[in-house]
């Protein structure tokens, strides 16, 4: 069952042709990794799924992206409604300058939820889901900035998951973290597999091979190869993929 379908997507930043004719299906509740050298367009492609690129002036999309069979770029689509369905975790931890509790509750509050008991329940669930509850349950009112970088990133994951999205986009979520925090994030991704569709951009190929079901290799704005992770890392069909995963360029 396909969660996200990209159909012949071309994307431009002004005159720059950033993504070239990409078509890809992302299966529901699986983990898909995007790999490729810097500037290959993988983050740009990821940010099309929650229309984050709308914020870039002069950008333009051709083709269609469907989530649950509906074109998310159709004119009647409410972007804020779409983003409740498609959560995102960024490269650097970016908690709000608010308390830990308020960070997680933010998504619920902007959705107009006022039921205090429900919010408390969801915050606890989300923090437990992000394996952060035991570390912060005593200090929910402390500033999120008092947490370590790894904790902040898990807080951001909890924040994204609190609104129960069906898709979670992760843009190099561990690239700014130490190895132990990275391992915790990867563990989280494994825990969430099967419950939510995860698309993760990463520079770390071991990470891609550890956490993902399918992997796509991007190069110079094109999707070179997309297959089961096992196939990509053991028996890629394209020479460019082979060269990249063996570290001959990149």
């Amino acid at each position: 069952m396909e969660k996200i379908e990209a159909k012949e997507v071309d994307f431009y930043y002004g005159d720059f042709h950033a993504l070239k004719h990409i078509s890809m299906d992302i299966p529901q509740n699986k983990v898909v990794a995007f790999i490729g050298p810097s500037g290959c367009g993988k983050s740009t492609f990821l940010r099309l799924f929650n229309r984050m690129n709308d914020l870039v002036p002069g950008s333009r999309l051709e083709g269609e992206i469907l989530i649950d069979g509906k074109n998310i770029y159709a004119p009647e689509v409410q972007v804020d409604e779409l983003r409740k369905e498609v959560g995102m975790v960024f490269q650097r931890p970016n908690p709000f300058p608010k308390s830990i509790f308020e960070n997680v509750a933010y998504g619920l509050r902007v959705n107009g939820i006022k039921d205090k008991a429900f919010i408390e329940h969801r915050v606890e669930e989300a923090l437990k889901g992000a394996a952060l509850w035991n570390e912060v349950k005593e200090k929910l009112n402390a500033s999120a900035y008092a947490l370590s970088g790894g904790q902040q990133q898990r807080l951001c994951i909890a924040r994204a998951m609190a609104v129960s999205p069906s898709v979670l986009l992760m843009d190099e979520p561990a690239s700014a973290l130490d190895p132990i925090s990275t391992a915790k994030i990867e563990e989280l991704i494994s825990d969430m597999r099967g419950k939510v569709t995860i698309v993760i951009v990463t520079h770390n190929m071991q990470q891609a091979s550890r956490v993902s079901d399918k992997t796509a290799f991007f190069y110079m704005g094109e999707m070179i190869e997309y297959d089961d992770t096992k196939v990509i890392f053991t028996n890629p069909h394209k020479e460019a993929t082979q060269n990249y995963i063996t570290g001959r360029f990149g």
Partner: peptide, 9 residues
């Protein structure tokens, strides 16, 4: 971006 990505207007 964090706020917008959570569906805030």
């Amino acid at each position: 971006e964090a706020s917008l990505a959570l569906g805030a207007t």
